[in-house]
Design a protein around this nucleic acid. Structure first.
Lengths: 336, 336
DNA sequence: ATGGCCCGTCGAAGCGCTTCGACAATGTTC
DNA sequence: GAACATTGTCGAAGCGCTTCGACGGGCCAT
């Protein structure tokens, strides 16, 4: 293994000079720097991560706490993971994946052994043990989602309440008066950090303000549940002219098929809208107008917030991203 | 931060004694051990990962090289990742996720800075640069899949050729003579380590031995392609009595719907079989008899092989897992 | 009793870095 | 031209562990 002292010897300088040349923390004459760079290249030197961690106080590793839930949507999950890894790498950080331990033990382990500089937490729950943990550990941390009682910590999320309002507002502007809503499975309600509740709150506020009648169906992930949810809405809202999705892709696909099988045209017979979509709404059987879930942006902000905290630049607090409407032509004025 | 010397002081012993008590590499009197354990518990001591890495030569971290392909199946990908993390944790290893760099640069970086003890490579390609890389680095490594020219390295995979034979054999035993095959997208053929080729080879060998007529369709992931692939088979094989899937779940679902829409009953009118299924074939619209892809087992073997190499117990080589047939009643004797 | 041996413990070296303080050799100011 | 900064480099300490060799004290066989 080639070490910094090999480089120093080859370049004819002391190891501290090499170190400063590498870190740029003190100025180095141009010629010396060049000799060092040459030596590094010729010896194919790579600093030892362990020695760096031990001497410096930073590891350049971030933990990603990504608990898997039974009813979670794996592709969405994976997109979050890769987005986090991506952003971390842009800041020269690597990501240690915690996907197996119960939420807290993994974080505790890697944090108290100083393996990581901070943690990004996905799959945030309403009552999330990781909140107290990172507070107790004083560990730089960012939550993707807003855990209960964690408002003082760094959290990032879509403004789901605003998204609910924007969704209803858009449909109301188009002239719809009865809107059916297909939501996430009921199990999300207990587990999650109330993003479903926040979305629904926005929905209801806007609905009552604009005089819109809404009905929400929350199908489970069982086969046929999505189709039945649609039928339930259709019979509960005889004058339903628009359908609003706030659920995962498989449910959307199933309902779109049901609609087609019933001979309904989008948007002629029924306007359709996908809110907080973590999937591509362009390439569905029918392209859907949507409010995209700004997944990459959320992950970027989370990673950068965690890294800021590592550097002592403390700026925690909840950051809500404003929802954006993306028109793909699936919303029109109601027929009659 | 509480260090080993704090523990030593509290227990009234030297730090080397604490270290030996922790590692068990020298014997320690029972009473001393207890004093040390008490001190550790009271001080809430956790060894510094960095110091361990630097002093010992091992990091207890494994890199997982998991490149994302455009046409990959995200849920399957995610299942592999979690299975690897799971197994690693069982051996007290953490996993550093490499999902963003081009395949080799990430591995090179973490390996040459001694951040990881070894690497597990997913998404293996026919010509995979990681083969030469780990050989050159003499890095403990395990491939999930069999890369071209990597037979001397540790690789684990399903015996796809055997799976092809078993699939045809099962259908032939049931009396089928014309079998339609729905395969992976054509793009897999170029990219992947020939597992498609190996499966097809087994298929053809068994078909010619048993006198079975087969036709393979390889739909892209575009909408409607799966349904068209089925129609193509149906017209190409007028006496087709069985359908064999060797593709990802969305394609299976689409084709099963097509079959149902055509009014065909499984298995009365058509026997259906899912080979190398990375998904749950029990909860499809129709439960399917299958040869499951032994994903967990593959990951376990890969991780353990990498760790064996870390310990110097060298046992590389290709390990093929025997295919297993799982009956779920979707295969029957042909109607007429 | 004497020598030899194992057992439990200790001190010290060393892993490869970062960073602090020191110190020549310049440059700047009046 | 004396006093003072500034610049570029060096040596050494220290980060928290692991591990080697040493050593005192029991124990056994002679």
């Amino acid at each position: 293994m080639v070490t910094i002292s090999d480089v120093a010897k080859a370049a004819g300088v002391s190891i501290s000079t090499v170190s400063y040349a590498l870190s740029g923390k003190r100025s180095i004459t141009e010629t010396t720097r060049r000799r060092i760079e040459t030596a590094i290249r010729e010896l194919d030197y790579e600093p030892s991560a362990a020695a760096r961690m031990l001497a410096g106080a930073t590891t350049n590793i971030l933990a990603l706490s990504a608990p898997i839930h039974d009813d979670g949507h794996l592709p969405t999950h994976m997109r979050f993971v890769t987005a986090v890894v991506d952003t971390a790498r842009q800041h020269d950080y690597d990501v240690l994946l915690l996907a197996t331990d119960d939420d807290v033990s993994g974080i505790r382990r890697v944090a108290s052994s100083s393996l990581v500089d901070g943690v990004v937490a996905m799959g945030v729950k309403a009552h999330d043990d990781r909140v107290d943990l990172v507070r107790g550990l004083r560990l730089p941390a960012a939550f993707i989602g807003v855990p209960g009682g964690g408002d003082d910590l760094a959290c990032v999320d879509l403004d789901f309440e605003g998204a609910g309002e924007l969704a209803i507002g858009t449909l109301a502007d188009a002239g719809h008066r009865e809107v059916g809503v297909i939501g996430h499975p009921p199990s999300y309600l207990e587990r999650d950090t109330g993003f479903v509740q926040r979305f629904n709150a926005g929905l209801e506020r806007a609905a009552s303000r604009r005089g819109i009648r809404i009905q929400v169906a929350s199908p489970t992930l069982a086969r046929g549940a999505a189709e039945r949810a649609y039928d339930e809405l259709a019979s509960g809202l005889p004058d339903m002219t628009a359908l609003l999705f706030h659920c995962n892709e498989p449910v959307v696909e199933a309902v779109l098929r049901r609609i087609r099988d019933l001979g309904l045209e989008v948007p002629t017979d029924l306007s359709v809208f996908a809110a907080c979509a973590s999937y591509d709404t362009e390439h569905l059987p029918t392209a859907l107008s949507s409010i995209p879930l700004p997944l990459d942006q959320m992950c970027r902000i989370a990673v950068e917030s965690a890294l800021h905290q590592v550097q002592g630049i403390d700026a925690p607090g909840v950051e809500l991203i404003a929802p954006v409407y993306q028109d793909r032509g699936s919303v029109a004025r109601p027929g009659r």
